[in-house]
């Protein structure tokens, strides 16, 4: 491969293609960089900062930073793990995350990140904000208590469904996910088959009447840490 770009992640040589981001090249090489807002088939939003890596000594988001010849990337260091723990802990205290009855529990990417990072409890005080639930739609509901403002539903609705059902409103602590209608989710064009319904990393956009169908012990992250699927590619990548 003559047009390959060679760089290192935690000292390991990685070869990527021009135009790839650090995240894309790392995924192909079987190196897991923790992430929350990034999803490979959506435009990178760069909002959650969980994927922060050190690029030639400077912090950058791996999901938006293009690779360059000879760059040095640090990913799995204690300092960066601490940054990621801080971010995840802030997300927990800023919302209302009652995992014990959440339909997403066991399959939730925020929870799985906390497990992988070894968080037993956030070090920040809980804020217990007032957030609302919109269950007006016959097939889908939004529980804003659990929204982490990742933007996936916004991108998916706009770019994959061509509908722009979701958009952010407000700033700072008042920022929230809003729907493109006079009032409620039931007034939008959102349909149960939309991609926007599939992409939420947490239990904020959920389909009705399908909760708790997978028993505890058989859910996605019950036994396997998030990112294991990517890391399993490492052996294969080595062979190529």
């Amino acid at each position: 491969m003559s047009d390959a770009i060679t760089f290192t992640i935690d000292g390991k040589t990685v070869r990527g293609k021009p135009g790839q981001t650090i995240m894309e090249a790392a995924d192909e090489a079987g190196i897991y960089i923790p992430r929350l807002c990034y999803l490979s088939h959506l435009a990178a939003h760069g909002s959650c900062r969980v994927c922060t890596v050190q690029v030639n000594g400077r912090p950058q988001t791996a999901c938006t930073q293009p690779i360059a010849e000879g760059m040095t990337v640090e990913n799995d260091t204690e300092a960066l793990r601490q940054v990621r723990r801080d971010i995840v802990e802030m997300l927990f205290v800023e919302g209302n995350h009652y995992c014990m009855f959440c339909e997403a529990s066991g399959n939730c990417e925020l929870q799985a990140l906390a497990y992988r990072l070894g968080i037993t409890a956030p070090k920040y005080p809980y804020m217990f904000p007032s957030r609302d639930v919109d269950a007006s739609h016959p097939d889908i509901f939004i529980d804003r208590n659990r929204c982490v403002l990742c933007g996936r539903c916004v991108s998916a609705s706009r770019d994959l469904d061509g509908k722009t059902v979701f958009e952010f409103v407000g700033r700072g602590p008042d920022k929230r996910i809003a729907v493109n209608a006079e009032a409620r989710l039931s007034d939008t064009e959102l349909d149960i088959t939309d991609q926007a319904v599939e992409v939420c990393p947490v239990g904020a956009i959920l389909k009705k009447r399908v909760g708790y169908t997978v028993p505890i012990g058989q859910r996605k992250f019950d036994h396997t840490p998030i990112g294991s699927d990517i890391e399993a590619r490492a052996a294969q990548a080595e062979e190529n």
Partner: peptide, 18 residues
């Protein structure tokens, strides 16, 4: 030792906090 979610984050009783 904080034992369980209610000790750690308030749990179901904390649903009254809002």
């Amino acid at each position: 030792i904080a034992l369980g979610d209610c000790a750690t984050m308030g749990g179901i009783p904390a649903m009254r906090n809002t």
